[in-house]
Amino acid sequence: MTTSLQTVLVTGVAQGIGRTICERLLEDGYRVLGMDISAQPPDGLSAFEQVDLTDARATRLALGRLTGRYDITRLVNNVGSSYREFVRDGTGQAEHTLVRLNLACAIACAQAVLPAMRQAGEGRIVNLISRAVYGRDTRSVYAATKSALLAMTRSWALELAADGISVNAVGPGMINTELFRRNNPPDAPDVSRLRDAIPMKRIGEPSEVAHAVAFLLHPRSTYITGQSLFVCGGLSVAKTG
């Protein structure tokens, strides 16, 4: 089976894991479409929409333009953000942004691609969640939205299975992205502590997350649905030390 005729939409493609996912899927022969608020998509995309994905109306319009031109049968709901704050310091901004970006955008994208997937009699949706579904202090709103996305992954898997559409989740652990490096300088004590807590004793690479996404999107992954695959060097299994 080949991936060369499949069209995949990826959200949040300008940097980090999303950018690497695009690059991997291009290597695999997919026609890749992207959406991001930043106007710096990776090379090789067949189409790109610059849009604020927290804006539901603008997102729907952009999706309409993409689905009007392409039959999208693969979707990667990658875009997401996080706020680090203690509950005592909350202002409501985290809730406002993260419910829209981490959840509403995923729903809008899934709704937009469903007709083409149903028409094709098959499809794949991969939602990017997080280890935070197991709890994360100072990021409770982020954890709530990612846990919500995990639960929706399971509901969508049940709901769409009869249409031949699989829905799975990939949960990255600590990954070596620009954002991670900016927030965690290599010489910071926190980074050593974080790395030591990982059974594999190293930070993961974006390409390792992309590999999991590519596996779940692949035409041969026909019987896997409702699952969550953590790419975390074993951190989800246990904390060491």
Partner: peptide
């Protein structure tokens, strides 16, 4: 979908608040 999102969100909150 929406109810499952809410149910999942409650678990994420509970586990994160437990730590915090």
């Amino acid at each position: 979908s929406a109810r499952s999102a809410v149910a999942g969100a409650m678990l994420g909150l509970a586990r994160s608040w437990a730590l915090e």
